[in-house]
Amino acid sequence: MRIAAQVEVSEAQRKQLETWATSRTIAVRLAERAKMILLAAQGKMDKEIGAELGVWRGTVARWRARFIANGLAGIEQDEARPGRKPKISARKVKAIVALTTQQRPDNATHWSTRSMAAKAGVSAASVRRIWQAHGLKPHRVVSFKVSNDKHFTEKLEDIVGLYLNPPEHALVFSCDEKCQIQALDRTQPGLPLKPGRCQTMTHDYKRHGVTTLFAAMNTLDGSVIGQCMTKHRHQEWLRFLRQIDRSTPKDRELHLIADNYATHKHPNVQAWLAIHPRFHMHFTPTSASWLNMVERFFRDLSENQLRRSAFHSVPELVSTIEQYMERHNRDPKPFIWTAKASDILAKVTRARAKLNKMQSV
């Protein structure tokens, strides 16, 4: 009769095996293997251990041998299994990926799972699995715009420097206008949210006018100075600058970040700034509105308050915006800028290189 190899365990190994054997949080298979080794250390044979634990004795013999060869690591990891041979060859997968990324279907701008399945001679489910494995989403497109500002680097470093290392005894405000906010009213009343049904609203609407929100967000604490106006000219911008002047301590220098809109650089605005030296303007590069932190506040305003609402008049819309800003300022939270200027510049440089390469083809 064949005698099973003797299993010897150290005190440390015994403690670990006992912990695994009684644990309720580890995999059941590992707990079962630990019990096998503990029983084997007591001198029991594979057949006895199999009968006691309700497993095949060959299984006990395999884990006994692995423990003797590799210790605890031998039973902690499962054996590699070959798995089922793939029905679609690697060459076929490579061809589908190349077809997806380098060609277009004859009658569409992008591939669908069905059109690719018909072209490649496989099932739509197989195409879906291949796309998921390679991170391909032909149905999605992401918009972008690379700034061509000649002074992009200088402006980028200036603005990011204000975010990450603001001047002492000064306030930094991110300023912009959210233009043409429409007072939209739905043509029919929608149904409220209920279990099993989402909120409903009509796709068409009535226009009752527009307003423009001028906003300046304090980058230190996230509070917002805002004012709604009917037009978007340099006169309204000057009125808003005066509001910022009245709303901030007179002994503080003010650094305002704004975009390159002509309203912000009008001669009358320049003249007003000349007699108010505590105001310092910093302009974002062209096509780089994402550098202006107040855009995050505008996004939250749209998502949380405006997009699903219905307004019967412009005054109602303005009142809603003012109430939102008032509640926001009761407990403001700043947006934390984390991207370094060098990282942004490196990314923009790579994007420009790719664009130049594509244009030269």
Rank of each mutant, 00 (worst) to 15 (best):
G196W: 01
D78Q: 12
F279Y: 07
A5P: 09
T19P: 00
N260E: 11
V361S: 05
S302T: 13
D149A: 04
K357Y: 13
H203Y: 11
H232D: 10
R308F: 04
N107L: 08
G54Y: 04
K250L: 11
M358N: 09
A34E: 10
L273Q: 10
G43M: 08
S123K: 06
K347W: 00
K87L: 15
A124Q: 15
V9Y: 05
Q42S: 15
D245V: 04
R239V: 09
L355T: 07
H139A: 01
G50R: 03
H134Y: 04
R104A: 15
D176I: 07
A117K: 05
E157L: 09
M293L: 15
N218T: 11
A118M: 11
A351T: 00
V7Y: 04
T211N: 08
T100W: 06
M36F: 06
K155C: 01
G50H: 08
E79F: 03
Q182Y: 03
C198S: 12
R104F: 13
D46N: 14
L355A: 08
S123H: 07
V210D: 14
A262Y: 01
R242C: 08
S112C: 01
D204C: 09
I75R: 06
D251W: 01
G83C: 10
K94A: 03
I159N: 02
H139N: 00
L164A: 14
N292V: 09
H312N: 13
E154S: 13
P189K: 05
S23M: 06
G54H: 05
R64F: 13
A170I: 02
Q227L: 10
V294R: 05
R24Q: 10
R114E: 15
Y205P: 00
M229V: 09
R2W: 09
H139S: 02
I225F: 11
D46E: 11
F311E: 02
E79A: 11
W131V: 07
D204T: 15
L156R: 00
T219F: 06
A353M: 12
P189L: 11
M217H: 10
R91S: 14
D78L: 14
E11D: 13
L184C: 05
T19M: 11
K119A: 14
K250W: 00
D78G: 14
A21D: 06
V9I: 15
A27N: 11
S287M: 12
H208F: 01
T349G: 00
D221N: 13
T200Y: 09
M1C: 08
I321P: 07
A183P: 12
P192S: 04
Q102V: 01
Q16H: 03
L17T: 04
G43C: 08
A216Y: 06
L213M: 14
G135D: 11
S360V: 00
F240P: 04
D221L: 02
I275H: 07
M229Y: 13
I49G: 09
E52K: 02
E11S: 14
L191K: 15
P285V: 12
K347E: 13
E177F: 00
R140N: 12
R352D: 03
A61Q: 14
L193Y: 11
P105N: 04
G135F: 04
L53E: 10
T200N: 08
I321H: 06
K178R: 02
R327T: 14
S342V: 11
M325N: 07
D158R: 10
V361K: 10
